[in-house]
């Protein structure tokens, strides 16, 4: 699993910047510290899905979302993924927020890049195991898929029990460096692209 500097710079709000040795060094240092303390975990499950106009039926639920319907077009099954870096990333960011704010900011960006990189890796594992191609990840909050779906999708995966992922009253994932996403599965025999 490799964290790319260009991804970190994007999360830092300076995409395409030439960071110089000082900032590059800081990114490397924070990446190493984060790698040493995180305990990434994930859980996934696969459900049949059906698209009905601007809604998707998945795991016994009818999800009203035209953007999700478009995303899953052509898929008869979908994988649900929940993943988290764990609470250690949040702790480390909080600790650096006292007197080392520049490290906190870089760490925050590195964490964002890291959870995405882990999700890429998990996605590949799922694709391999299912012997199928997957769409990109689609999360509550994208398009017209409301944030409130996070809770329902997490429950479907029993993600609280399985990986300790929770959702706050305000609809945020806690631990913060976490992802809940839906991916469509193109079955290799279905003739879909």
């Amino acid at each position: 699993m490799k964290i790319l500097e260009k991804d970190v710079l994007r999360y830092l709000g300076c995409p395409g910047a030439q960071p110089g040795e000082g900032l590059s060094g800081l990114i490397r240092q924070m990446t190493a510290e984060l790698e040493a303390c995180v305990t990434p975990k994930y859980v996934y499950g696969i459900w049949d899905c059906r698209i009905a106009g601007a809604a998707v039926s998945l795991g016994g639920m009818m999800i009203e979302s035209s953007s999700l319907a478009v995303h899953l077009a052509g898929c008869r099954r979908a994988a649900l993924l929940a993943a988290t870096l764990g609470a250690a990333a949040d702790s480390l960011i909080r600790r650096y927020s006292v007197g080392n704010m520049e490290k906190a900011v870089v760490l925050d960006a590195v964490s964002a890049a890291m959870i995405e990189a882990f999700c890429d890796q998990y996605q590949q594992e799922i694709a391999k195991k299912e012997n199928a191609a997957l769409t990109g990840r689609f999360s509550p909050g994208y398009g017209d898929l409301g944030i409130a779906w996070q809770q329902k999708l997490l429950r479907l995966l029993d993600g609280g029990r399985r990986i300790g992922l929770t959702i706050t009253g305000g609809g945020m994932l806690a631990p913060a460096k976490s992802v809940i996403a839906v991916m469509g599965i193109f079955s290799e025999f279905s003739g879909d692209i």
Binding site: A87, R94, G160, T166, I167, T168, G170, A174, P175
Partner: peptide, 13 residues
């Protein structure tokens, strides 16, 4: 069992 929400400061409970 657990409340299902993470306690502060990690969460908001």
């Amino acid at each position: 069992g657990p409340t299902g929400r993470l306690l502060a400061p990690f969460g908001d409970l």
